[in-house]
Amino acid sequence: MLVLQISIKGYTASFRSPASMNYQESLPFPPPTTITGIIGAATGREYFEAQNYCRDLSFGVHIQENEGIAKDAWAIKKVKDGGRSIGKAVVIREVLYQPNIRLLIVGPETKLKEIKKAISDPCFPLSLGRDDEFITFIQSELETAERVERSVIHNTVVKGDLQGKINITALNEGSIPHFKTYWLNSEFDRDKRNPKARRPKNRSPYTYISEPVEYSGEAVDVSDTVFPLWR
């Protein structure tokens, strides 16, 4: 099968976890909404158009080693007393330094070729997380991939319940590593009162697999790297 593999680098990236408030933890991987935003910016589509465009695509990510994590203090405005007054607050935001990401896209061949062409000459600037965290390097290649039933995965993301999908003890001699699960929204709805505003929907668990484990879910092998697929 034909897939599109995209290599992405930047100076910084920040994918705020929706559950974090005063301390804004960064996800170690780009969430599905960020991937949709990158495709939309490359192909010249506003977000809701890009969301519809991506419905028949599947994604996979593999995180190369980042150079580190920084913590940045931000002053924000805070609404108080039911909107009658506005105060100020300081939040700490995690920032990934020099992120290095491999993104895999699976879908109709014509659409993969269209995205590849757009990536080489994007309509709008491409960013990771916030609008000012620009992608400094991006390269895409059409690759041949093989579907695999059982494989070893690491530094990647699995969507949904892991029960029955991973085997840890065979690879780690009985020690069970801690894998963090994030509840993320894969799509947005338009706000009925303000069509330009977005309301999150389709909340699902996404787990970052930081250590090698045996995996039996849907996945493809590209140049000896296995990508679990999700939509």
Rank of each mutant, 00 (worst) to 15 (best):
K117I: 06
P32W: 10
Q98L: 06
D224I: 05
H62P: 03
E109C: 05
L142T: 11
T110Q: 10
E46V: 12
K201P: 03
I119K: 03
G129V: 07
L184C: 12
G217H: 05
L4F: 07
N155I: 10
S223K: 15
S7A: 07
I92W: 06
F227R: 05
L184S: 03
G37K: 06
Q139W: 05
I115W: 04
K117V: 05
L128N: 01
R102I: 15
E25A: 15
I138P: 02
R193V: 09
K113H: 11
Q139F: 09
P30N: 09
D81I: 00
G37R: 04
F188P: 01
A75S: 15
E143G: 03
Q64K: 13
E67T: 14
P122E: 07
K116E: 08
P177S: 08
E114S: 06
K71F: 02
L4E: 02
K88P: 02
L171C: 08
T156M: 03
I209N: 00
M1Y: 10
Q98N: 12
G82C: 12
N202H: 13
A118M: 10
Y215H: 02
Q139P: 00
Y206C: 02
G87K: 12
N100I: 03
R84K: 14
L126D: 06
S175H: 10
A118R: 06
A118C: 10
A145E: 04
R203Y: 14
F48G: 02
T43H: 11
V106Y: 06
G37T: 08
I166Q: 01
A170F: 07
P200S: 08
T110I: 04
D191L: 00
K159R: 14
P30W: 09
V220P: 01
K71V: 03
S175M: 11
V220S: 01
G37S: 15
F29E: 05
E141L: 06
R203A: 14
F124I: 14
V226Q: 07
W74I: 00
I138A: 02
L104K: 03
L142D: 04
D81G: 00
E211L: 00
V79G: 00
S14R: 08
R203D: 12
S151V: 08
A50D: 04
E218P: 04
Q24Y: 08
F29N: 04
L126R: 12
D121M: 10
S186T: 15
G217Q: 04
L184A: 07
P28D: 01
D132P: 03
I86V: 14
N167G: 10
G37D: 04
R199M: 09
S14T: 14
I69G: 06
T181Q: 11
Y97A: 12
G107P: 01
P122V: 11
V90L: 13
V152N: 10
H154R: 12
F188C: 08
K78L: 14
S85V: 05
F59C: 11
N194F: 01
V226L: 14
T136V: 13
C123M: 15
I105F: 03
K111D: 03
A50V: 09
Q139V: 01
R84F: 05
L27T: 02
A13L: 05
L96H: 06
E49F: 11
S151C: 09
